[in-house]
Design a binder for these strands. Structure first.
Lengths: 206, 206
DNA sequence: ATAAGTTAAACAAACGTTTAATTTAAACAA
DNA sequence: TTGTTTAAATTAAACGTTTGTTTAACTTAT
């Protein structure tokens, strides 16, 4: 995939607007105006509004697997690696939160004609790497056996997204007045909470 | 709020379509066709598409507080009540998942002119009841102190919604072929996973 | 000179809402 | 039970906008 500057500019403008107003809530004219280009350029470069979105998915979702492998291959103690994995996931999720939001919303839209196969394939790969890591920790006796591994990531991603989707509520409730303090909260408190949750779940005996 | 049969029929049709295709992805004509009524009836009964949505929120979100109080006032042991609270939340969430999905998506849409105040007020109340319960358990020495209480519900709701939004993925991954087996999975495995997560988090010592 | 980039204008289709006319249902008096 | 009145419910048609995409002309760079 080779994209020129203008294409990337369109993609990132579209990402912002799709995340803010939804796919159907964002018009091609809105994107082109915000990006400072002519309406026809979207069709010219991407073919259609749908294909623009598919291009955005590929543009944003690459190279996570590599980062994940890198963290695991450091061979730190299991609990430390677990913390690192969670921190990595949250960091990536937060950086690409807009695209993830669009995926979350459009993936469950039956009526949409968008190809999610590359996204699904990548997700499956990543989860099987994490699953292998947890099973290895179970064999080593560090993690307990009685855990629903497939739902582990649901808890990690789900907690982050619920925070992000209800940002307005938590801003109010936690008195996070400006963007920097939200960033700090995500990378400290929220990450710590999820790390503790996953560690507790994997080591807690009834 | 008194709604006649036809109004409820419109509301529930709209709920289904909004959840499937999004608010902007659902036209008033689509709703009226699916509900078997004339297009003008939506404006006639609700005033506008936006006000229809606000009516749906109130219609679905009521009386949770009552159920929550009822569970807590049974005065079972703390860990059992905790399980009951989680089970109650998941049951309610799952029953009203469509409306919750719409709220999640539209609440983070800056451009939308929808009144979320009654929803926010209710959410704040419910969370403060749960917060009080956890603090009481901490005083009793059953729950540990080192927990981010405000993020507890983010983990509960977030895990459920991540499962629901990625239903297609989990269906594939967990081989849940039909709707009954999904229902069973939600009320058994998923609920159990979240109960274990929250119990672990609230009792786990480093 | 050739191809890529960019533009304004036009296209049919779909959008939410309003209008004005008609049908239905309920209330009332004879 | 009847005919009449009144308001609510329902309808098809029309309103002005906005939608995604295409066209054909024009500009820029190679």
């Amino acid at each position: 995939m080779d994209l020129n500057e203008k294409q990337i500019q369109i993609l990132e403008t579209a990402e912002k607007l799709f995340a803010e107003n939804g796919f159907d809530g964002t018009s091609v004219r809105h994107i082109s105006k915000e990006a400072g280009i002519n309406v026809a350029m979207v069709s010219y470069y991407f073919g259609s509004k749908e294909k623009l979105l598919e291009t955005l998915f590929v543009y944003r979702m690459s190279d996570f697997r590599m980062e994940l492998d890198s963290v695991i291959s450091k061979n730190k103690p299991y609990l430390e690696t677990l913390d690192d994995i969670v921190a990595l996931i949250i960091r990536r999720l937060h950086r690409n939160r807009r695209t993830h939001k669009i995926i979350n919303f459009e993936f469950s839209n039956e009526n949409r004609q968008i190809d999610f196969n590359s996204y699904l394939e990548q997700k499956k790969e990543n989860l099987s790497v994490i699953e292998a890591f947890v099973k290895s920790g179970q064999k080593a006796g560090v993690f307990i056996k009685n855990v629903n591994i497939k739902l582990l990531t649901a808890t990690i991603l789900g907690t982050y997204f619920h925070f992000y989707y209800n940002k307005k509520y938590y801003q109010m409730s936690l008195k996070l007045d400006d963007n920097p303090s939200i960033e700090t909260y995500v990378h400290n408190d929220l990450t710590l909470h999820i790390q503790n949750t996953i560690k507790a779940l994997l080591t807690y005996e009834k």
